[in-house]
Amino acid sequence: MRAAVLTRFGAPLTVREMPDPEAGGGEVVVEVLATCVPPYAAEVFGGERKYPLVPPVVPGVGGVGRIVHVGPDATRLRAGDIVWCDSTVRSRDDALTPDITLQGWSSRGEGGARLARYLHDGSFAALMRVPTENVFPLPAAAGDDPARWAALSVHTIPYGGLLAGGLAAGETLLVSGATGNLGSSAVAVALAMGAGRVVAPGRNRAALALLADRFGPRVRPVPLTGDEAVDRAAMSAAGDGPIDMVIDLLPPSAPGSAVRVAAMAVREYGRVVLMGGVGMLGGEDLALPYPWIMRNSVTLRGQWMYPRTANVGVIRLLASGALDLAPERVRPFGLDAVNDAVAYAASHRGPFDRTALVPVASAGPASR
């Protein structure tokens, strides 16, 4: 098979021939029809984000595929099925605190590193080996436009955070980082889940206007000034009532103060979910006041990625039309243009901008 390989950090990806993967028990081999290229991929491949990838490695975060081979323990999956391949792989020998690796992308701790050594390669390839439990059937529409459906890798992340925070229909949510790629997804997913209104703070006024135009009055944009007191008051006012939940999806480059001002806009007995990258590259700590958390009975929750069931939930939202992929701007690239795709993703990281790698030439129509 042909695959894009990271030979060393700081070097362009190299497209070359590699042996076809073979499935063992509890595994599936899929033909990769499309995979999403994250906007920060260049930072990972350049070594800036210091991800624990071990070159040479085929990178890639999940994807839409067609099953080629299933193992003997699969009872419902069949060769030819169009499926979503979730990159979040969990160890099978500890149900309470499983080790986790993001196949072809990252890992957590020594246990996650061991998983990554076994499931080393990701989706920037014609074929990929995936654990059976990480494969989810998709509706027929996904096979017609897999590059668009590859956005599942984006939408499942905030969906996992909203599940962790227990977002209920009719509630008011504040999305910290709403104008970014993941934050704007959180806005869309929350509304699809029935949020009554979504407060969307940000500095990018064009992105705020895009969110307001797409979703209407249920989205309440808040242009940020950088003054914590002023911004917190504006967020609270925009909620037109108590803010039930805050989800943070800010990138590593954002200061801790930006998270803090959003978190402290939540109501008494409210919930705060942290999913962003603030502090990963050093810098200011979050420093939420202990008395404020305790006296206001605030629930503070960290969430990395999402539970397996989140994949099923997002697929249902997409299949029903509650979460609409049609307005998203999708730019597909063939495998030979993988480095162009990485560069394009880096320069198109705004709301609902998607960059897709299409390793198989017959993977459906090019989408925009």
Rank of each mutant, 00 (worst) to 15 (best):
G63R: 01
V89F: 13
G279M: 04
R329L: 09
A186L: 13
G196I: 10
D94A: 09
G10D: 05
A366H: 06
D94Q: 11
G63Q: 06
A113E: 02
L53S: 13
S253H: 03
G160D: 11
D324F: 15
L53R: 10
L115Y: 12
D340G: 15
G60R: 09
D240K: 15
I82C: 08
G62W: 13
V273F: 10
R220I: 03
D248V: 00
A319T: 03
W304T: 14
D336G: 10
L249N: 04
M294Y: 15
P221I: 03
V230T: 14
A341K: 05
R148W: 00
A234P: 04
R267G: 10
D340Y: 12
D336F: 05
V83D: 03
G60W: 02
A238E: 07
C36T: 15
R308D: 06
I157A: 09
G279C: 02
A113S: 10
A363K: 07
A186E: 05
G65H: 11
V261I: 11
S257K: 15
I157E: 05
L77S: 09
P307D: 15
Y344G: 05
Y306N: 14
G143N: 06
A34D: 09
V273Y: 08
S123P: 08
V330S: 01
A186Q: 07
A195L: 07
S362L: 09
T14S: 02
P221A: 05
A195T: 07
L325R: 11
P201A: 09
A79R: 15
F124M: 11
D20A: 13
V314E: 02
M280A: 13
N181A: 08
R117A: 14
V330R: 10
A188N: 08
R2Q: 10
L281T: 14
R92D: 13
A238G: 14
V32Y: 07
G177M: 04
H155K: 04
T179V: 09
A3L: 09
P137R: 15
A234L: 00
W84D: 03
D73L: 08
E110D: 14
L191V: 07
A41S: 09
V37K: 01
W105Y: 08
P72L: 01
T7M: 09
G183M: 04
I315S: 04
E27I: 00
G26F: 07
F9G: 01
G60C: 07
P38F: 06
A287I: 09
R114F: 02
P139W: 03
P201F: 03
P139R: 03
L119Y: 01
V32C: 13
S257G: 13
A190C: 12
D86M: 01
G161W: 01
A95H: 07
P289Y: 14
R117Q: 14
G109I: 03
L208N: 05
L138M: 14
R214N: 03
R92E: 15
Y290G: 12
T75P: 08
G302Y: 06
E133V: 03
A238D: 12
Y306E: 07
V314A: 02
P221F: 00
R148A: 02
R331P: 03
L115I: 08
A356G: 00
V187L: 04
G111R: 03
